[in-house]
Amino acid sequence: MAYSDIAAFFPILLKGAVVTVQITLGALLLSTFLGLLLALMKRSPFAPISALASTFINVIRGLPIIVQLFYIYFVIPELGIDLSAFQASIIGLGIAYSAYQAENFRAGIEAVDAGQIEAAKSIGMKSALIMRRVVLPQAVRIALPPYGNTAVMILKDSSLASTITVAEMTRAGQLIAASTFQNTTVYTMVALMYLALSLPLIFGVNRLERFFAKSRQGADQ
């Protein structure tokens, strides 16, 4: 493991890391938006809407993420929609994780029991105020730790983008390894760089969980 190798590989891997972070953030954003939409659709009193959301969620959960990526990257262009590999990876991961996000959000909203909402009404609060002061603060606390876990999973699964030629960190590592045969050095570096990204997130989630557990809360009694 020569220092000169490390110094030579690092900038290339760092470029890949930037792409990894971009994909992760893009997919996180998309999955958040779609997940919220699905969660609200699932709560809709209009049966076809909630059924549509449930079906979508089940189909997505039943498919390997890599197959979803292939589908979006190879099949969608045949319909005449041009997507770069980078765009396809964000859309694919975003959709794949929207199903999990929807469950997170739904659990958060539903954990606020109807009794509290009635109590809020009984002191004259209007629905917007109830959302802001009673439902959302609790829903966010409940949904935040799973949200952080989802972010970690998206970060790791962004490596799947390498299979559709996106030059993120894993792919960058593969390319270096293939041309230099320095497998140990390259993949150790790749692993360490993933940990550098994921461990702070994981510690953050743990802290959040402990913090919320302390000021707990939860159903009465």
Partner: peptide, 8 residues
């Protein structure tokens, strides 16, 4: 009956 205080 069940108090319904705001737990947060």
């Amino acid at each position: 009956q069940r108090f319904n205080l705001f737990p947060h």
